[in-house]
Design a protein around this nucleic acid. Structure first.
Length: 735
DNA sequence: CAGCCATATCTTTTT
DNA sequence: GATATGGCTG
């Protein structure tokens, strides 16, 4: 009796296939982590492979941690030497050691999205880029895309000669790179990109890692992008023992550069590859799998798989159509507390999954009212909070004096009376001398025109220098305490005496204990390493098994998780699938959305609920959405109740109630609203066909005269009924 | 220079 | 509806 006997035939085959390229197509819930962990165990125990010659790469820290724990349980020795980590931390480890060969300093800092934005703002200012036309976020998106495709700033520039806009973006890209380098900082994309550059340009380093990682395993392969693909290929080129695990039906990160072709073309890239399909599902009931299968079957391009299970049929799917989002939240809250009260479920058995983070708010409000413990994953990341970023910026400044973004963030926090004018003088001085911002601060008295501000800057510099000299002498926790004490950061919040300030203090306390935990864990804790760890955590990593709360998160965050009882909320056309994908010309977009739905359904083990709302507030405007097409793709005999047919004439639904409510609401504002531009007369009337630049063609159902503007209700062919202000909507009448 | 108020934009998803 | 940004004033 060996540990491998508990695996099914296909799983065993995957475990025993240790040599050469291997593609494991693992359907949802088919035990792929089991296979990977057993495979690692098998390599060590039966094949005598040294643990440090094995590498397993995942996307999240949570997955990495889980894998390591399970290998530990399986073999109980040597597992700590197996290299199990995420793409990003793997790269950081490599770069910390060798990035000096690319001309960077080895103690580079990692910039998150916020920091990138700050840099981008400066870039735009410097290059005189009109951020009304070229949005910072958009520019960063283009740069990120280029980096994911391994296009350097220089190449981008060379390719942009013909297009004015592209040329502008190229200039921004170059300046952005220049600043990142000056700050000795890398963004998330750089971590991968620089590592690949290093491996490509430095034979020594490449050979070192190729000989180190003799067996490579990659989890969630369907979500790898071009750089990640390149990274893995380079490492595996010599020994070719590359095992990738994934499910093309769960590829949901295209927007982040993931290339589903990587998994589709694996057999072309590695001609000798062995392919193994895992289709037996151990997670869900047959009904849930049937629903998932029928939805995903609508996709045209995919590797055929059909999940089956030995579990019973189980319960039917529960679908509800509510009038609005409040009722939806109310029902879910009620249903969960009922089940907990009856002892059928614990809170942690239940998860609410939605398309957009914004949807979490209503559930949150309801759960607070009903006293249901909950945890929201995603949204504003803990490390994205203002107070946390401020304090981390202090630590970063102390750790790496070249991190201008960090210095600028805190130089006037708490208020020291150092304003923008002074800062730009310092910046000019720094630019003129070709030195960093912080170094310029050190020479404040040399900076022309600073005047009185010098006296405010000097104490700040002295303080930072003091802490810097203390590094390594006092413990990190003491250092942080001193900083908080000396700057008066917490004291200021205490004086504020608001709920918000108290929440911020709590967050700071949590950061303190995180630092303390880190210091305890590590043999030789360093500030730099702590900052790095912090930079690479995702929110999902914080999910704890042992606490009992309902989990709320986006469908994206839910990938890889499972819950006995799942609620898929907001199943509406326009929300899920989103307008963007409905109106897109590219049919692949809706397919990606459908895969997301497939991911959602397959999270459920025993019970699956779905719900839609007829009316929903989205960014301050009311939308009337139809039931999601995905719901209708599920055979009706899988539902507990019959789902209403689509209304032929949806006009009734808008009805008099809506008009009356609208008139009522706009009345008190009438007086002053007349000053606002209001079209004298609209070019269309009820019943006309109109065109909207986003939503396409539709028919005008209703026009209401509000105080400020006409409110027009239109039923669009693609996205359903929308209510909009005439002056914003810019509807064009069609003949 | 800091605090207040008006406006604009957001909503797809995140390592 | 909520938040980030920009402009204005004290």
């Amino acid at each position: 009796m060996s540990i491998y006997d508990s695996l099914n035939d296909m799983q065993q085959k995957a475990v025993y296939q240790t040599e050469g390229p291997l593609l494991i197509l693992a359907g949802a819930g088919s035990g792929k982590t089991r296979v990977l962990t057993h495979r690692i165990a098998y390599l060590m125990e039966e094949k005598g492979v040294n643990p440090w010659n094995i590498m397993a790469i995942t996307f999240t820290n949570k997955a990495a941690k889980e894998m390591r724990e399970r290998v530990d349980q399986l073999i109980g020795y040597g597992s700590e030497s197996v290299w199990v980590s995420t793409f990003h931390s793997t790269c950081v480890r490599i770069l910390r050691r060798f990035i000096d060969r690319l001309g960077y300093d080895n103690n580079f800092t990692i910039y998150d999205t916020d920091d990138q934005k700050t840099v981008m703002k400066e870039v735009c200012k410097r290059l005189d880029v009109d951020t009304k036309i070229y949005k910072e976020k958009n520019l960063l998106g283009q740069i990120s895309k280029a980096k994911n495709e391994m296009i350097s700033a220089e190449e981008f520039y060379a390719n942009s000669a013909s297009d004015f806009r592209q040329r502008k973006v190229a200039e921004v890209y170059m300046e952005y790179e220049k600043r990142m380098r000056a700050n000795n900082a890398l963004d998330f994309d750089d971590l991968l990109l620089k590592t690949v550059q290093l491996l490509e340009n430095d034979e020594q380093v490449l050979a070192y890692y190729q000989d180190r990682f003799l067996y490579i395993m990659v989890d969630e392969y369907q979500d790898t992008n071009t750089v990640q693909f390149k990274f893995v290929s380079l490492l595996a080129r010599k020994n070719r023992n590359l095992c990738v695990v994934g499910d093309d039906d769960q590829s949901i990160y295209k927007f982040r550069g993931a290339n589903i072709r990587n998994i589709w073309d694996f057999e072309k890239t590695y001609e000798e590859a062995v392919v193994i399909k895992l289709e037996q599902n151990y997670r869900s009931t047959q009904n849930i799998l049937d629903a998932a299968n029928s939805v995903i079957a609508k996709n045209t391009e995919r590797k055929e798989k059909r999940l089956w299970t030995e579990n019973g049929k189980g319960e039917l799917i529960d679908f509800h159509h509510f009038d609005n989002g409040y009722e939806e939240a109310e029902y879910v809250a009620y249903d969960i507390s009922k089940k907990v009260r009856k002892g059928q479920r614990r809170y942690k058995d239940c998860a609410i999954l939605y398309r957009t983070n914004a949807q979490s708010r209503m559930f949150e409000e309801r759960f607070i009212a009903e006293n249901i413990p909950y945890k929201i994953v995603g949204g504003v990341n803990f490390y994205g909070r203002k107070e946390i970023k401020d304090i981390l910026a202090y630590l970063k400044t102390i750790d790496n004096g070249r991190d201008d973004v960090a210095v600028k963030r805190i130089i006037n926090v708490p208020k020291r009376g150092i304003g923008l004018a002074s800062l730009s003088k310092v910046q000019d001085y720094a630019d003129g001398r070709g030195i960093g911002f912080y170094d310029a601060l050190k020479e404040a008295e040399e900076v022309p025109g600073l005047g009185r501000a010098t006296a405010k800057i000097t104490p700040f510099v002295t303080m930072i220098q003091k802490y810097r000299s203390k590094l390594g002498l006092v413990s990190l926790t003491d250092l942080l305490d001193e900083i908080l004490e000396e700057t008066g950061y917490v004291k200021e919040l205490e004086l504020e005496d608001t709920d918000e300030a108290r929440a911020r203090i709590e967050n700071i306390d949590e950061l303190i204990s995180k630092l303390a935990t880190y210091v305890e864990q590590e043999e030789t804790p360093t500030l730099g390493e702590f900052l790095e760890e912090v930079a690479l955590v995702a929110d999902i990593d914080s999910l704890e098994e042992d606490s009992d709360y309902v989990v709320l998160m986006t469908l994206h965050s839910a990938k890889g998780l499972e819950f006995p009882n799942v609620y898929l909320a907001g199943m509406e056309d326009g929300l899920f699938p989103s307008f963007m994908t409905i109106t897109s010309d590219d049919p692949m977009e809706i397919e990606e959305e459908r895969r997301l739905c497939y991911v959602g359904i397959t999270r459920a083990m025993e019970e699956l609920h779905m719900s839609s709302a007829r009316m929903r507030m989205v960014r301050g405007e009311t939308q009337y959405n139809k039931i999601s097409r995905f719901v209708r793709e599920i055979p009706s005999d899988l539902f507990q109740h019959e789902i209403e047919k689509e209304k032929a004439k949806p006009e009734e639904k808008v009805g008099s109630y809506q008009v009356a409510k609208q008139a009522f609401r706009s009345k008190p504002m009438v007086g002053k609203q007349f000053t606002v531009t209001k079209a004298e007369k609209l070019s269309y009337v009820e019943g006309d066909k109109v065109n909207h630049r986003m939503f396409g063609i539709g028919q005008v159902l209703n026009i209401t005269e509000g105080g400020r503007d006409y409110e027009v209700t239109v039923e669009f062919e693609k996205v359903g009924i929308k209510k909009m202000f005439a002056s914003f909507a810019k509807l064009e009448k069609m003949s």
